[in-house]
């Protein structure tokens, strides 16, 4: 059979004998090695975050600044996204409920959808794009321009000052933003209901919350904390470990968004399974 890829000879670690291997196989092996070493490095990174979080000299002022940067500056984006999410979900759900003559269940159905799933996941995905890319690009450019090294030689622990504060700020701000998005989503839903009807906000909310229970609300809030941690850790990890060239900043920002979005979905899947088992 004809070889599609060039073949090279390498020495086997196991036997010491020379073996033939295609360059493609070697390339895939290197990719796999990089993938697993990346996982290992991230585990060490997370361990360092835990260690520095509980160390003395916590950078409280920087933590508050990051809360402001992440929380306050994301409000307009989350408000618009949340409201549109509510309107669209209501408009899309109405025909299906109309077929069964169950339009009165619309507020309750939308409220459960938003609070349980759509609110946290959509908000987390939007924030993975905004915060994740911001952290990846900011820390990546600080790495490239030696600012992290400058911090290190100024007797300031960059892990504590830059990473721990950002990860904690993301962890605490994402759930708050999720609640905010849920609220705006319900408001958007009320607007959506009123496009084809006339329902007061009081009646809408009483119908919506009569369908919602604590077990709908609590797991969603808990998983939002994990979404925030994932976004913060991935964004900081990619930025902090960016290469030395300027193109690494773009790579760090891009990979931070891709990986954190993917992990948000994975964490959601795990959270739903756990919630399903427990409740």
């Amino acid at each position: 059979m004809k070889n599609l890829h060039p073949v090279i000879k390498i020495k086997s670690f196991a036997t010491g004998k020379s073996v033939k291997i295609s360059e493609k196989t070697l390339e895939k092996t290197q990719m796999a090695t990089e993938f697993f070493s990346d996982i290992g490095n991230m585990a060490i990174f997370i361990k360092e975050i835990f260690k520095e979080t509980f160390s003395r000299d916590f950078e409280f002022k920087e933590f508050l600044r990051q809360c402001y940067e992440i929380g306050n500056k994301s409000l307009p984006l989350i408000a618009i996204t949340g409201a549109i999410m509510g309107v669209v979900l209501t408009i899309q759900s109405r025909p299906a409920l109309e077929d069964f003559g169950a339009v009165t269940m619309l507020p309750g159905m939308v409220a459960i959808s938003i609070i349980r799933e759509i609110g946290p996941v959509i908000t987390a995905l939007i924030l993975a794009g905004k915060i994740g890319s911001g952290m990846g690009a900011e820390l990546g450019s600080m790495k490239v321009s030696e600012q992290i090294d400058a911090m290190e030689v100024s007797a300031t622990n960059p892990m504590r000052y830059l990473v721990v504060t950002r990860v904690l700020a993301a962890t605490f701000m994402v759930p708050i933003l999720v609640l905010f998005a849920d609220g705006l989503g319900l408001f958007g839903s009320w607007v959506g209901v009123n496009i084809k009807g006339d329902v007061s906000i009081v009646l809408f909310l009483s119908q919506a919350f009569s369908s919602v229970e604590f077990i709908d609300f609590f797991p969603a809030l808990v998983k939002s904390f994990f979404f925030g941690s994932v976004i913060g850790i991935v964004g900081c990890y990619k930025g902090y470990n960016a290469g030395r060239g300027t193109e690494s900043v773009g790579v760090a920002a891009n990979s931070a968004v891709v990986l954190s979005s993917l992990l948000v979905i994975v964490v959601d899947l795990i959270a739903v399974q756990i919630t399903d088992m427990i409740l």
Binding site: E138, M142, S145, E146, Q147, D149, A150, V153, S154
Partner: peptide, 26 residues
């Protein structure tokens, strides 16, 4: 490290801070 000054090739000034804040930081 508190007794050693290191001047980086690129300057390594903190982009997000003013000159005053850069000097106050260390």
């Amino acid at each position: 490290r508190k007794k050693i000054g290191f001047l980086f090739q690129s300057g390594a000034l903190y982009d997000s801070m003013t000159v005053k804040q850069n000097l106050e930081f260390p």
